[in-house]
Structure formats: structure tokens, C-alpha cells
């Protein structure tokens, strides 16, 4: 009898410790790892961009076709003034679980940054650095600024966060369903989970491309407002 009680209490202590450790892992450690991973991604992008020469003028034959995005590699950096001045996240190609641990993920089938169509990006709302924690605070008119190393793209939010179901893939269509956009354009879609710690729904925000400027012309005003 004593042995059974002892074994049971040891099992309880072990389970409790395991759960505690797991909570520490999810709430704290994934954030630490995401911080290190995104710093690495931002560094890689900065070095890559520093190495390439920004074309001062387009050649007469038109710009060369852009390099296709590489799965899991960084392609842009996103800034959202509403989320704070220090909010700076790399956007990587693809939305696989491993990719989303290192930054935001661009839906591969959707348009390239700044192109006609819909540039759709997914990000964690909680855990792994909480990048999209404040998505519900976005309001129409808010700026979402991205750079690919040669151009600044300023998008403006058009809708309040829209709640939908996970299977609603129409929200990342070139002309997103339920967005209110009537025709083709240069759109941006953010997707994250809803409710905050759950997975029953998704939260969607749409924006349209408002302005572009070459990086040589300096930071867009939207970043400092």
C-alpha cells in the first residue's frame, strides 16, 4: 500500500513538473527562440540587401524579371506603426510550421510584394514572439509598411479585423472575398488565429497599396507618424 501511494505521488509530481515546464516553454522559450531567429533573418536580409546595388534607373528594356521567392527564406521586412516603433518582423516565404517559428509567412500561391493581386501574410498571434498579438487593434487608415530592400511599400488598412473560419480560403484571393474590394488591385492580407489562444476561427485584415518609394528616397513618413 505504501508503495502504491508513493508511486502515485511521484507520478503526480512528475506530471505537474512536466506541465509547468511545458508552460514555460510555450509562453517564454518559444519567444526567446523566435527573437533569436528573427534577428538572424533580419541580419541576413540586411546583409543581402547591402550586397546588391540598388538600380539608380531602370534599363530601357524594362526591369529584369524578379527572382522567385525561396521557400523558408526571408523576402521582406514588415513594420506596423500601430504595433509600436520597435515592431519589426521578417516575412519569409511559405506558411509551414517551421517557417512561422522564424517570422511571418507569405502564402506561396499569392501575389508578390507590391504586385497586382493579394500579398497574403500569416503570423502567430500568441507564442513564438506574439507578432500579431495586436492585430485586433488595427483600424482603417493604419499603415503597414514593407520593404524588399529596393522599395518601400506603404499599405493602408481598409477594414476592421474580420472574423472567419479556417477553411475560408477566399479571404486570400486576388480580390479577397468579403473585403469589400470591387475589382483587382494591389492588396495585402494579414491572417492570424482567433480567439487569441484558440484555433476555431481566423482573424483577417485587408489593406491596399497606398504608396511606394525607392529606398534611396528615405523612409516613408508613415513609419515616423
Amino acid at each position: 500500500m505504501r508503495l502504491v501511494v508513493k508511486a502515485f505521488s511521484e507520478a503526480c509530481i512528475t506530471t505537474g513538473t512536466l506541465i509547468l515546464l511545458f508552460v514555460v516553454y510555450v509562453l517564454h522559450w518559444t519567444g526567446v527562440q523566435a527573437g533569436a531567429a528573427t534577428d538572424g533573418q533580419l541580419d541576413t536580409l540586411q546583409r543581402q540587401w547591402a550586397g546588391q546595388d540598388v538600380p539608380a534607373r531602370q534599363p530601357a528594356a524594362g526591369p529584369p524579371p524578379p527572382k522567385p521567392y525561396e521557400d523558408g527564406k526571408g523576402l521582406a521586412v514588415m513594420y506596423v506603426p500601430r504595433f509600436g516603433k520597435d515592431w519589426e518582423w521578417p516575412v519569409l516565404e511559405g506558411t509551414r510550421t517551421a517557417t512561422l517559428k522564424k517570422g511571418l509567412g507569405h502564402y506561396t500561391p499569392t501575389a508578390r510584394l507590391g504586385e497586382r493581386g493579394n500579398f497574403a501574410v500569416a503570423g502567430h498571434r500568441r507564442t513564438h514572439g506574439d507578432p500579431f498579438k495586436d492585430v485586433p487593434r488595427l483600424r482603417p487608415g493604419d499603415a503597414i509598411v514593407l520593404t524588399d530592400g529596393t522599395t518601400w511599400f506603404t499599405y493602408r488598412v481598409d477594414t476592421k479585423p474580420y472574423r472567419t473560419v479556417p477553411t475560408d480560403i477566399g479571404v486570400i484571393d486576388p480580390v479577397p472575398r468579403a473585403s469589400g474590394y470591387a475589382g483587382p488591385g494591389r492588396y495585402l492580407t494579414l491572417t492570424t488565429c482567433e480567439p487569441e489562444w484558440g484555433s476555431s476561427h481566423r482573424l483577417i485584415v485587408w489593406a491596399h497599396l497606398d504608396a511606394t518609394r525607392p529606398v534611396t528616397a528615405g523612409r516613408p513618413e508613415a513609419l515616423d507618424s
Binding site: 512561422l100 500569416a122 507564442t127
Partner: peptide
């Protein structure tokens, strides 16, 4: 459920 942030059908 914390990882499900995409719409993918």
C-alpha cells in the same frame, strides 16, 4: 491550437 494561423482549407 496556437499554431493555426493560416487559412488553408
Amino acid at each position: 491550437p496556437f499554431n493555426d494561423v493560416t487559412v488553408d482549407g
